[in-house]
């Protein structure tokens, strides 16, 4: 499954990093604590969070995550959008909450455990 499949099926907003949408997604992780995601996120994971500041980009790039989905319709800060573009990190958005979004990702066949 690629990010663009997910974007299309769940009608996600693309805030930045459109160039990275053909990237395959292996799983997903939910977290709003940076150290938690640093410890438990895995390469090619999709990261689901409500955080919108630029440190999100740093963590996602350092962990080689496939992309980030910001939930609850929150808008990323300007810095976050700019850095995502620079790093070609797909930064996506949805009006759904993390629970509902995860359910739908599961229905698409995405799993957290690998």
């Amino acid at each position: 499954m690629t990010l663009s499949d997910i974007v299309r099926q769940l009608e996600l907003k693309v805030h930045a990093g459109r160039g990275g949408l053909d990237r395959p997604v292996a799983g997903a992780y939910i977290g709003d604590l940076m150290s938690d995601v640093m410890a438990h996120g895995r390469k090619d994971d999709l990261w689901i969070t409500i955080q919108i500041h630029p440190n999100v980009v740093a963590v996602a790039v350092l962990k080689d995550l496939a992309g980030v989905i910001i939930t609850n319709g929150r808008e990323p800060s300007e810095d976050t959008v700019r850095q995502s573009e620079e790093q070609r990190l797909p930064l996506l958005g949805t009006s759904l909450g993390a629970f509902e979004l995860s359910g739908r990702l599961h229905q698409l066949g995405l799993r957290g455990a690998r």
């Binding site: 604590l33 940076m34 150290s35 938690d36």
Partner: peptide, 15 residues
Amino acid sequence: ELGFGAGMGLPNIKR
């Protein structure tokens, strides 16, 4: 509020 201060930083380094 920025998602820091989980008290996991130094343990993460050690691990």
